[in-house]
Design a binder for these strands. Structure first.
Lengths: 191, 191
DNA sequence: GTCTATATTTAGATAGAC
DNA sequence: GTCTATCTAAATATAGAC
């Protein structure tokens, strides 16, 4: 039936995107090969091109996957009522990934850093991706009545991206724990 | 004479390292080819291998060049007497590079981000490179009598690295200007 | 729709003339 | 020491059998 066929098709496509995200996160965009992704997704190499015409299309799909997940994660934080609680929940959520970050960096940040060096459309997609948490944080600060909401949002996401870079470079998850506490105190001080 | 010969040799080697730093900064390590570097240094492609046995050796030389420059820049900041003045001078120095950063990111940060994905010795060199400003800042905070000098140093460099990533991703040097002012106020508040 | 075999391209590295 | 021509390896992409 078309159902089982299209399910298999969807299954492979999704596995390829998931594989691309995983391998790209671990090894970076440029060093990742189609063969690496195919292997991670358990799909024969030649078959990849049935679903994605080029490597860049696969990278674009991986970025889009990150965007979907980021939006869902941010929406989920809105279960908290107060904006301060939401912002601190974001910080805790981000800091809970410290072991992964120590090994491979922030999935969004490393992607932005690498793809910003390119002049094709992929760098703009990354820009939109990083704008999601900044816009969301700005909204929370604005609800708190801060006129400088944008600056604070930029400072918060920058603090996270920066500590993610140091945590990764020094392979020390403890750095994130300490900076997370500092950021929570900072958010409290703005209330 | 040997002088003119060794001068020419030094000249080419230095041009290759300078070219490598420039091209790698603009395009990233992985996408940069030996041919790109040779062209930037105005040296014939085949001749590169007389000075550097592999591409990685050239990358290592580029990292070392950054380390030398960073150390010199930090020493130069010590013309200021007070640690607060030194730290604020560091912030101003870093922020003065905002146009470059908007185009290509922080030279050290983008290098660390990209090379941390590798398991060869190059990732450790980057780690040492980023440790330079952190150690230096820690020293200043300690001179100020702060017991939490290390945390503050990590927070400062992280704030810079983070805002550099956002400035680059959003192609907006103004972000750095505003965050720079915030950091200077923050340093003053710790005095 | 799936997959193997292969064409094409490119980049790292080397041999050897000068 | 310098440089050209070329080898080799690897990765993207395609052709075409099933």
């Amino acid at each position: 039936m078309t159902d089982s066929l299209s399910e298999r098709k969807q299954g492979k496509r999704e596995r390829l995107v998931a594989g691309a995200r995983e391998v790209i996160y671990r090894h970076g965009v440029e060093t990742t090969t189609i063969a690496d992704i195919a292997q991670a997704a358990d799909v024969p190499v030649g078959n990849v091109y049935y679903y994605f015409k080029t490597k860049d299309e696969l990278v674009a799909a991986a970025i889009d996957g990150h965007a979907q997940d980021a939006q869902a994660a941010l929406r989920s934080l809105e279960r908290h009522r107060a904006p301060q609680a939401r912002l601190k929940a974001l910080v805790r959520e981000l800091m809970s990934q410290r072991e992964q970050v120590a090994d491979y960096g922030c999935p969004l940040g490393t992607l932005c850093s690498e793809l910003d060096k390119r002049a094709d459309g992929l760098d703009r997609s990354c820009s939109e991706l990083l704008r999601l948490p900044v816009d969301w944080a700005e909204q929370q600060f604005r609800t708190m009545g801060r006129r400088d909401a944008r600056d604070l949002a930029v400072a918060l996401i920058a603090a996270y991206q920066g500590i993610a870079l140091l945590t990764n470079t020094f392979r020390d998850p403890e750095l994130m724990t300490r900076e997370g506490r500092r950021l929570e105190r900072w958010i409290d001080s703005l209330a």
